[in-house]
Nucleic acid binder design. Structure first.
Lengths: 130, 130
DNA sequence: GCACGATATCTGGTTACGCAAGATATAGGG
DNA sequence: CCCTATATCTTGCGTAACCAGATATCGTGC
């Protein structure tokens, strides 16, 4: 099943406005996922729904976007993977942060903060000028 | 001439770390450029140097990145273009915000702020947990 | 017992954009 | 005369988000 997300984005597309949100998410998604995995391990589908719920739609992703991210994180050694096949129910793939993953999370958080601060500072300049 | 930029990025690449900054800029660049054009018209080369100076390196771009952005903005009707050929010196192409450009600037600023706020809120959650 | 929706994961192709690298042209200094 | 600085433009590459589809299992209703 495909999670139905990004309603605002679809509206923008219909209006001819390209969704800039898509681009903004570039590079932030990895950080977002690592952050969500920090408190406890989780499986893909759970992350998608968590994200939609916790950010009330502002940072939603489709599963088709998330799984490649998780795969990338696994390949990079930032998460470890564990399959769980319950007697009843669909098998789940649980992702857990590794030590390298925590280090990466810290690094990306810093990078994001630096970037966001630079943007905020820039956007503040000249707000009363002109 | 190519502006020499993003020293940090090159260091990261040398270390094997891919620069996430590159991805973070996605979608923000248009906003950045529109913002820089808000107080007064400017030419491409000027924008590159201004940006490097004003953000002390945090938001630098190369000219090879900027010119396509400016072209996109022109095609979209967000900036108007004027050539100036002085008696001495290289001709300059001046870009000026249109009314549509100012509207777009406002819209993008709002989108950025919304996104950044959502990110900050998310990254704050669980900062003391575990 | 079977159709259907919800849960859960994976894959292929498309699109878009930042950037490195190269080309081009003018002007001034050693 | 070459080298650097100013100034713009173009090609090609890599990467990442996303859409659309495929697959498989379970619970519920008819």
């Amino acid at each position: 099943m495909r999670y139905h997300l990004l309603v605002a984005d679809e509206q923008e597309r219909a209006e001819g406005r390209r969704g800039i949100e898509r681009e903004l998410k570039r590079g932030s998604l990895e950080l977002i996922v690592l952050h969500l995995l920090a408190p406890a391990e989780a499986y893909g589908y759970e992350i998608v729904s968590k994200l939609a719920a916790e950010t009330s739609g502002a940072l939603e992703v489709t599963d088709g976007t998330l799984y490649p991210v998780l795969y990338r994180l696994e390949r990079a050694g930032f998460v470890s993977v564990r399959w769980e096949t319950p007697q009843r129910g669909v098998p789940r793939k649980y992702y857990r942060l590794t030590d390298a993953g925590r280090a990466e999370l810290a690094a990306l958080t810093l990078e994001w903060t630096t970037f966001a601060r630079a943007m905020s500072r820039l956007l503040r300049t000249g707000r009363d000028a002109r």
